[in-house]
Nucleic acid binder design. Structure first.
Lengths: 216, 216
DNA sequence: TAGATTGTTAATCGATTAACAATC
DNA sequence: TAGATTGTTAATCGATTAACAATC
C-alpha cells in the first residue's frame, strides 16, 4: 500500500534500513521498534506507525524479523535493482559525489559525468570519463537513466535541468543555489549547502537564549 | 521575538534572503510576499506568516523593503559577523566543502581542517594546512569556534564528535552515516547523502503509480 | 502463565492555508 | 479614491505521540 506515505516517514526508512543491516551483521534475528527508533531519534510508536504505512507487520512481544523487513525496505526504496544516475558539473563537489563510497552500498551508481569545461572533458574520475554536456541527451536516453544530479554553478543549473528533463530524467538532486523550473512530473530535491550552514550558524547564535532540540 | 520559530520557517529564511539579495541587485526597493513565496515554493500567506515570527513588518499595498529586510535576516541568521567552522576528515567530500564557493558568500568560513592520515597532515587545501585531529581541542578553544563539520568515515565519527564537544563545539553538521551521541546543548544536523539519494530513487520508482509533488 | 512488544485508535501538537479587514 | 498587498485570525491539514487491548 505505498499510497500516501508522509515525507518524514519516507526519510526515516533508509535510516531504519541501515540499522537493520547492522543488526543482521550482529546476528540478530529480530529487532524492536524501540531499537529502530533510537537509531532515527524517534519514539517507538513512530516506528510502528511508519511501518503501518508499508503494511509491515512485526511479532508482538518479539519485534520485527530482520531479514524480512530489510528486504522489504530494499524493494520499497527501489534498491533491489541497481539504480543509475547522471551527474553534471564535475567541480570539487561533483567529484566528491562521484567518488562517494556510500552510494554503491545502496546499489546506487553515478554512471555518467558531464562537464562543459574543455579542460575537464576527457578526464577520468573513478573510472568514468567526463563527456561534454551536449552529449547528455543521447546517453541518458540510451541508458534510460532517470536520476540527475546537478553540481554546476547556479548560472547554468536551469539550462542543465532543461536538458535533463528533455532527455527523460524524472528526479533531480539539485546542489546549485538556484530554484529550478521543471514540469510537474519531475521531482526536484534541493540541497542548498550554504543555506543549511546558515541555519546551523543561526542555531549557534540562539543557543544561549533558547535551547534547541534536534529536529527529527 | 526569536522565540519559537518553526523549523520549516527557519529553513526558508535563507532562501528568502537570497531572493532579497538578487532583488537588491536588480534595483528593486520593495518585494512582495508573492515574489518571495515563488522563490521558496510556498504561497504568499506562508511568507507573511514566516515574517510574523520575526516581527518583520511590510507595507500593505507595497511589500517589504528590500535592504531593511535583508539586513534583518542577516542579523537573525547570524551572518553579520563572519562565522567560523572547523572540518574534520579531508577526503573528497571534506575537500569539496572546504573549497565550496557558496559559504564565504554567507560570511561562513571553514578555517581549520583536521585529518589523521599522516599523508594528508601538512597538505594545503585552499590556503589552509591540514593538522592532526589531536590538535583540534586547543585550536577550537583558542579561536572559540562553535561549528564543526564531520566528513570522516562512519567508524571514527563518534570519536571526532566527542573531541569537538569536549572543545566547545555547539553545532555539528554530520555527513557520516552514523548517528551521534551528544549532550543536549549540542545541536546535530545529519546530512546523510546516501539516504537522500535512496529516497530520490524511491520517488523515481513510484512516479508512475503515484505522481509526487515536490515537498516544501 | 508472565513479560514483552506489537498494531491501532484517539488525542495532541504544530504547520499551512484561506479569507478578509486594515493600510498604504 | 482605487488598487494592491499586508497582518492576523480561524479553519484545515497532516504528523507525532500516548495509551492500551491484542498477541506472541
Amino acid at each position: 500500500m505505498p499510497h500516501n506515505i508522509p515525507t518524514p516517514t519516507l526519510n526515516r526508512l533508509p535510516i531504519y534500513y541501515r540499522r537493520l543491516l547492522d543488526a543482521g551483521e550482529e546476528g540478530a534475528a529480530y529487532v524492536s521498534s524501540a531499537e529502530l527508533g533510537r537509531s532515527a531519534g524517534v519514539p517507538p510508536a513512530q516506528v510502528r506507525k511508519d511501518f503501518s504505512y508499508l503494511s509491515q507487520k512485526g511479532r508482538p512481544g518479539v519485534g520485527y524479523e530482520v531479514p524480512a523487513l530489510a528486504s522489504h525496505l530494499e524493494e520499497f526504496l527501489g534498491l533491489v535493482n541497481a539504480k543509475e544516475a547522471v551527474l553534471a558539473g564535475v567541480g570539487n563537489l561533483g567529484r566528491a559525489l562521484a567518488l562517494y563510497p556510500g552510494f554503491p552500498a545502496y546499489g546506487l551508481h553515478i554512471v555518467v559525468l558531464f562537464d562543459n569545461d574543455p579542460d575537464k572533458v576527457g578526464q577520468e574520475v573513478g573510472g568514468r570519463t567526463i563527456i561534454p554536456v551536449g552529449q547528455m541527451g543521447d546517453t541518458v536516453r540510451r541508458r534510460k537513466i532517470r536520476i540527475g544530479i546537478i553540481t554546476t554553478p547556479a548560472a547554468v543549473a536551469q539550462e542543465v535541468a532543461d536538458a535533463m528533463v528533455e532527455a527523460g530524467i524524472k528526479a533531480i538532486w539539485n546542489f546549485a543555489p538556484q530554484s529550478l523550473e521543471v514540469p510537474g512530473d519531475v521531482y526536484v530535491k534541493n540541497e542548498d549547502l550554504a543555506a543549511e550552514l546558515a541555519v546551523l550558524s543561526h542555531h549557534v547564535n540562539q543557543m544561549k537564549i533558547v535551547p534547541e532540540e534536534e529536529p527529527a
